[in-house]
Write a protein that binds this DNA or RNA. Sequence first.
DNA 1: CTGTATCCGCTAAGATACTG
DNA 2: CAGTATCTTAGCGGATACAG
Lengths: 119, 119
Amino acid sequence: MPTRTCAESSCPISDVLSVIGGRWKVHLLWYVLEGPVRFNQFRRKMPGISQKMLTQQLRELVRDGLVARKQFPEIPPRVEYSMTPLGRTLEPTLRSIHDWGNKHWSEVEEARSAMMSKA
Amino acid sequence: MPTRTCAESSCPISDVLSVIGGRWKVHLLWYVLEGPVRFNQFRRKMPGISQKMLTQQLRELVRDGLVARKQFPEIPPRVEYSMTPLGRTLEPTLRSIHDWGNKHWSEVEEARSAMMSKA
DNA sequence: CTGTATCCGCTAAGATACTG
DNA sequence: CAGTATCTTAGCGGATACAG
């Protein structure tokens, strides 16, 4: 596999970022990896996200085929979000991101504070 | 390893996003993975990025210890950016992102156009 | 409970000009 | 060549109110 450079159009990296980029999607995907999640479960687990952003990001994940939305005809209404087969193919990537944070975050913090003391 | 949920503070995913998040950093890292890169080489390879963003993102990558900046005392000046050992630990993650795009992007496009025709 | 709709501040990001 | 400095702008994302 040639080590090519990603510039702009038709670049795999841009493609992936258009799907999992932004502040929330990786979190949402990571969470839904465990199993079906309801709307307000997301909100409880992620106090930082606004309702609007949650709706918006979920819809985009559904549109891109990573997450499935299932609505139950009940009162009160219930909606569950779950991983699609395509979404599951992202699991190793998500796990890689998560694990890198666990393993190497302290080194980043060291680097940062080292820079602070220099400047 | 427990499958925990990432909420907000001291979450590995947030940590990683704070380091490689944004529109450009993954591209920059992917490029510099091949070997030392000079400032204007980045610009040529990534026509979309502005000078300001390039400077800013590179500085953050340096600050976070992923990229090293080496300045040569020459005229005209030369500066090379390269991966640090810490940066290299990100290689599998970067590769995972890149490869997922290569393998699965067409499926995302299919999902998107399927949604378009429905709506 | 699961969303829509509207308003709005803030900051990420582009354009341009200038410097060592 | 490798950046700074300054100004401007688009849109991300939050707050709030309302709806099925």
